[in-house]
Amino acid sequence: HFTSQQLQELEATFQRNRYPDMSTREEIAVWTNLTEARVRVWFKNRRAKWR
């Protein structure tokens, strides 16, 4: 589960860029205190939901 702060950060990034690269995902991981893998999976799932 994600905190509302984490989701806000993830959503804001998603609005700007639906396909963040590795370095962007790592930055998000640092800001949100999540692993890069969790961030990558979140984006994958979010893109699926967005379609």
Rank of each mutant, 00 (worst) to 15 (best):
E27P: 00
L10Q: 00
F2K: 02
E11Q: 02
E26W: 09
R51E: 15
Q8S: 11
R25I: 13
K49E: 15
V41Y: 11
Q8P: 01
N17C: 10
Q8I: 12
N17T: 08
A29P: 02
L34I: 06
F2N: 03
R16A: 09
T35G: 03
W42E: 00
K44G: 05
R47H: 04
F2V: 07
W42N: 01
T35M: 03
I28A: 01
W42H: 00
R38M: 13
H1M: 10
D21K: 05
F14D: 02
R47F: 05
E26S: 10
F43P: 00
R46A: 06
R18P: 12
L34Y: 01
I28W: 02
P20R: 01
W50R: 05
R18E: 05
P20D: 02
T3G: 03
I28S: 00
T13H: 15
Q5R: 11
Q8Y: 11
A37V: 13
R16M: 09
P20A: 05
K49W: 11
N33F: 07
T3M: 04
A29R: 03
H1Q: 13
S4V: 13
S23G: 09
Q6A: 07
R51Q: 13
R51I: 13
N33P: 01
Q8C: 12
R16V: 12
R47T: 03
Q5M: 12
V39M: 00
V30W: 09
N45R: 13
V30S: 12
M22Y: 13
V41R: 15
R47L: 08
N33K: 10
N17K: 03
E11W: 05
Y19R: 05
A48Q: 09
T13L: 15
S4I: 13
I28L: 13
T35V: 03
W50M: 09
H1R: 12
Q6S: 05
M22C: 07
K49D: 08
R40H: 07
A37T: 10
R16H: 10
S4H: 14
Q5L: 13
W31Y: 14
W42Y: 02
R51N: 11
S23I: 12
T35Q: 04
V41D: 12
F2T: 03
T32R: 01
L34K: 04
Q8H: 11
L7E: 11
A48D: 10
T32I: 13
F2H: 03
V39P: 00
V39Y: 01
R25K: 01
W42D: 00
E11T: 03
F2I: 11
A29L: 04
E26L: 14
V30D: 08
A12P: 02
E26A: 11
T13R: 15
M22K: 15
R16N: 11
R51V: 12
Y19A: 03
T3W: 04
K44R: 10
Q6V: 07
E26T: 12
D21R: 04
Q15S: 10
F43R: 00
H1W: 12
E36M: 04
Q6R: 03
T3Q: 04
F43V: 01
E27W: 09
V39H: 00
F2R: 02
R47A: 04
L34R: 02
Q6I: 07
P20I: 01
E11C: 07
R16I: 13
Q8A: 14
R38T: 12
R16P: 03
N45K: 14
F14E: 02
Q15A: 11
R18L: 04
V30P: 01
D21V: 04
F2D: 02
T3R: 03
R16K: 13
M22I: 09
A12E: 11
K49T: 11
Q6C: 04
A48T: 09
L34W: 04
A29K: 00
Q5P: 05
L10Y: 04
T32C: 09
R18G: 04
R18N: 06
E36W: 04
F2C: 06
E11S: 01
T3A: 03
E9N: 09
T3L: 04
R40M: 05
A37D: 12
S23N: 11
E9F: 15
W42S: 00
L7W: 10
T24C: 12
A48K: 14
H1K: 13
V39I: 09
V41A: 15
E36T: 05
S23H: 13
R25N: 02
S4Y: 13
Q15N: 09
T13Y: 15
A12T: 08
Q15C: 09
W42I: 01
N17I: 10
